[in-house]
Design a protein around this nucleic acid. Structure first.
Length: 466
RNA sequence: GGCGGCAUAGCCAAGCGGUAAGGCGCGGGUCUGCAAAACCCUUAUCCCCGGUUCGAUUCCGGGUGUCGCCUCCA
């Protein structure tokens, strides 16, 4: 057995073999920071964060690099519209990005390089390509000579001639071939710019990733990932740039996540159905959003709608509830799960088997529900001992943690001590059969987001709604 | 036109040669002061037509439907 990953390059699931024993070097294409990220941007972030967590769970040391494109046409346009400098807009939305992604419980990248802070490496990279004859300057622009690179089209599985028919030529470009793409763009008057051997300008989009991969991870890396739309042209162009220069494979494995749709339609500005993470997390628990994303295999498209999200609220609630209930029974009991229990090992084995199959989080989540089922049965049994209950709790925490799902509650709108006090009052009332008073207290607490449940082992409470 | 994905119960979604995981929802039951939570039961001839095979949802061929890339859109 062992981990298998689907490689876009070969269109097959392949055994994962790291370049260096025990280490994974991965690069994930990050956002262009001209606006808040939408849920389509969030999917690769969540998916590949989960990939990273899984590698770490399996004992790998992961170097995770994800860039910020902080200069491009959209940033320049936003700058003009809002009369704010490009760097300030970038700062604003990098902060917003980190907030949004943090809410989704995404781990910090090892490096988050910005294009504007990688300028010397970018310029040097282009210069070497020009020297090697793979690129040529024209009127202050520099283009990559696509046809000179033998492997062009290998990632998207298209022949150069097939690609040519679909290419659009911008006005004012003086390319030798329509397939050639910009490495450097001459600055138009008033635009943000950097000095270069070809005059003042800024980098093209694709080159920053090649330069950053080289700078932070080396000539060859294990995994390069991003959304499926990046296969062509972005990743194809990255391969051309890097491999033309290094004469080495850029990345062994190329992973691409499927897109998100809204009510079965493509999410796009023209349709006007773009959902920003910034807004969505006001409406749904970010953990539910993360959970929802992971219920579908990452390569498949995923549909977003309120109905589906609400289903996810229920489903994720089942996991949280089981965790709460275990915790309630264990309260005041310092028991720790101990020793290798056959059952716990089986869950772990099933979980790993699922994730080893190209990160099949849907099946991994099914394992979580298996645990919940068994744990709930154990909870019904008065005689269940703390050690075995703690075992359920700990395995649930361990495996959900690999998926980056937090089951414990965060909010604290009312103090624990106040809640306990009210519960005592209600218990007293219940003993006297004053159920009107008891229900009143229960309703009052519900108003404050605290739910009471009467169980054979006493009153159990949790924060939440409904 | 080139390349590709997908089609499994009311909904979502795994499986991919030996007659169908899981979740949500619906219905029935148990427990409970009432609830809640939970448990049990119930809910699928896997888009169509051929073929290969002892046997196909799973492989091959052909349809149909649907979505996407070929536009600096994750």
């Amino acid at each position: 057995m062992g981990l298998k990953v689907f490689n876009t390059l070969t269109r097959k699931k392949e055994a994962f073999v790291p370049l260096e024993e025990g280490k994974v070097r991965m690069y994930v294409c990050g956002p262009t920071v001209y606006n808040y990220i939408h849920i389509g941007n969030a999917r690769p972030v969540v998916v590949f964060d989960t990939v990273r967590r899984y590698f770490e769970y399996r004992g790998y040391n992961v170097t995770y690099v994800s860039n910020f494109t902080d200069v491009d046409d959209r940033l320049i346009n936003a700058s003009k519209e809002r009369h704010i400098s490009v760097p300030r807009i970038a700062d604003e939305f990098i902060k917003a990005y980190l907030d949004d992604v943090g809410a989704l419980n995404v781990k910090k990248a090892t490096f988050n390089p910005r294009a504007t802070e990688t300028m010397p490496e970018i310029i040097s990279f282009i210069k070497k390509l020009v020297d090697a004859g793979y690129a040529y300057p024209v009127d202050g622009d520099v283009y990559f000579r696509t046809r000179k690179f033998q492997g062009y089209g290998k990632l998207s599985h298209q022949s150069v001639d097939d690609l040519k028919s679909g290419v659009r030529i911008e006005i004012g470009e003086n390319k030798e071939d329509p397939l050639d793409f910009a490495l450097w763009k001459a600055a138009k008057p008033g635009e943000i710019k950097w000095e270069s051997p070809w005059g003042e300008g800024r980098p093209g989009w694709h080159i920053e990733c090649s330069a950053m991969v080289e700078k932070y991870l080396g000539d060859t890396i294990d995994i390069h990932a991003g959304g499926t739309d990046l296969v062509f042209p972005h990743h194809e162009n990255e391969i051309a740039q890097s491999e033309a220069l290094h004469h080495k494979t850029m990345a062994h494995y190329w992973l691409h996540n499927g897109h998100i749709q809204i009510n079965n339609e493509k999410m796009s500005k023209s349709i006007g159905n773009v959902i920003l993470v910034h807004d969505l997390i006001k409406k749904y628990d970010p953990q539910v959003i993360r959970f929802f994303i992971l219920t579908v295999q990452y390569r498949h498209p995923i549909n977003f709608s309120d109905e589906l999200l609400n289903d996810a609220v229920q489903a994720f609630g089942r996991l949280k509830t089981a965790y709460y209930n275990l915790d309630h029974r264990l309260k005041g009991n310092e028991a720790v799960s101990e020793g290798p229990s056959e059952k716990l090992d089986q869950y772990r084995y099933d979980f790993i088997e699922s994730m080893d199959d190209d990160f099949n989080t849907a099946n991994a989540i099914a394992v979580l529900f298996d645990i919940v089922r068994d744990a709930n049965i154990a909870l019904q049994d008065e005689k269940s001992d703390a050690v075995s209950l703690a075992g359920y709790r700990d395995i649930l925490e361990e495996l959900s943690g690999v998926l980056g799902l937090k089951l414990e509650d965060q909010s604290e709108s009312i103090l624990d001590s106040d809640i306990e006090e009210l519960i005592q009052k209600r218990e007293a009332a219940r003993k006297e059969k004053r159920f009107d008073i008891a229900d009143e207290i229960r309703d009052a607490l519900k108003e404050k987001g605290v739910i009471l449940e009467d169980t054979a082992q006493g009153v159990r409470w949790k924060r939440g709604h409904e």
